[in-house]
């Protein structure tokens, strides 16, 4: 079932809590060395998916393999090959940065150098400080450092840059790109679509518990969703037009203005964020339509007994 070059393989993953269907029909693969972003609104099922793959939750149905192992049965040997950065936690933090990293490095057969990791997350100045005395963003960097200290083949990053200032986020991106260059496979969830676009090769979008789209970052959503938009002002009115041939439209506009400058002219290619928002919006409205269709069907039940 699993292609040999695949680090993660998921087929028809399902998770129910009682009668609530939290996750269904989720299937995707992550190739070795690939960075894959799992995107979606809060509560859509991203964390449930990632926690099943990390071995924290049991799945209700479907198949999953992570580094060739069923995550529901992974032992310590399997965990030694993973790096996990959870959503932020509130631990007491009564070790120093260096003590904590040195201690965790000891868990792994082939850990990274502690000094290098401290430097990579930019905490050289704080290495003798108790973790509880660090700021939120600094503590988040410890989480990342603990995730990579074991030199993982596969790194899970669950909203890793929440609470980072823009500079720290840029530094973090450099770190992740360096890990990627070394061949680390990465599964990322994030609410920052620019981050997903910058770091990932492919992305999957989860909404309402199912995977509604999966593909390369520059292809996701299909060609239509990526059609550029030309915006300009004509006769004092803001105009915009979607076209696959923006150059031609711009040339026409210039002609129409007799070669003069077209006011406020811009050609915008939809960003991953634009594509994402449109996909999620489309999903929501079709879910609403389905719900109202269902209600309408009930309304017109011939014997009227249902209502």
């Amino acid at each position: 079932m699993t292609p040999p070059d695949s680090a993660v393989s998921v087929r028809d993953l399902r998770k129910t809590y009682g009668s609530v269907d939290a996750l269904h029909d989720v299937s995707f693969d992550i190739a070795r060395g690939e960075t894959f972003a799992l995107l979606g609104p809060n509560g859509a099922g991203k964390s449930t998916t990632i926690e099943i793959l990390e071995g924290y939750r049991d799945r209700t149905g479907g198949a999953a393999e992570v580094l060739g192992v069923d995550p529901g049965r992974g032992g310590t040997d399997w965990k030694a090959r993973l790096g996990i950065v959870l959503q932020s936690t509130g631990e007491s933090g009564s070790a120093t940065v260096r003590e904590q990293l040195t201690h965790f490095a000891g868990f792994y057969p082939n850990p990274r150098n502690v000094d290098e990791v401290i430097e990579a997350v930019g905490l050289q100045e704080k290495q003798k400080t108790l973790i509880r005395k660090l700021s939120g963003g600094q503590r988040r960097r410890i989480d990342v450092a603990l995730g990579i200290i074991g030199n993982p083949e596969l790194l899970f990053l669950d909203e890793p840059t929440t609470g980072f200032d823009p500079e720290a986020r840029r530094q973090f991106w450099q770190l992740i790109l360096a890990l990627k260059d070394e061949g680390t496979t990465i599964l990322l969830t994030t609410h920052y679509l620019d981050e997903a676009a910058r770091l990932s090769d492919r992305a999957g979008i989860i909404a309402g518990g199912s995977l509604i789209e999966v593909g390369a970052i520059d292809e996701i959503g299909g060609a239509e969703a990526r059609t550029p938009v030309v915006r300009w002002i004509e006769d004092g009115v803001a105009r915009s037009e979607r076209t696959t041939e923006p150059s031609r439209l711009v040339a026409e506009l210039v002609d129409r203005h007799g070669g003069a400058e077209v006011p406020q002219l811009e050609v915008v290619r939809p960003s991953l964020e634009d594509v994402y928002l449109e996909l999620v919006e489309r999903f929501d409205s079709s879910a609403r339509d389905a719900a109202s269709l269902h209600a309408a069907a009930l309304d017109t039940t011939p014997n009227g007994g249902v209502r």
């Binding site: 071995g55 965990k79 030694a80 959870l86 936690t89 631990e91």
Partner: peptide, 18 residues
């Protein structure tokens, strides 16, 4: 109980620590 509540155990559970 505090370590279970504050995420310490969850973090350790994700490492190869027996």
């Amino acid at each position: 109980a505090v370590e279970r509540g504050d995420g310490t155990l969850k973090r350790l559970a994700g490492t190869p620590l027996p």
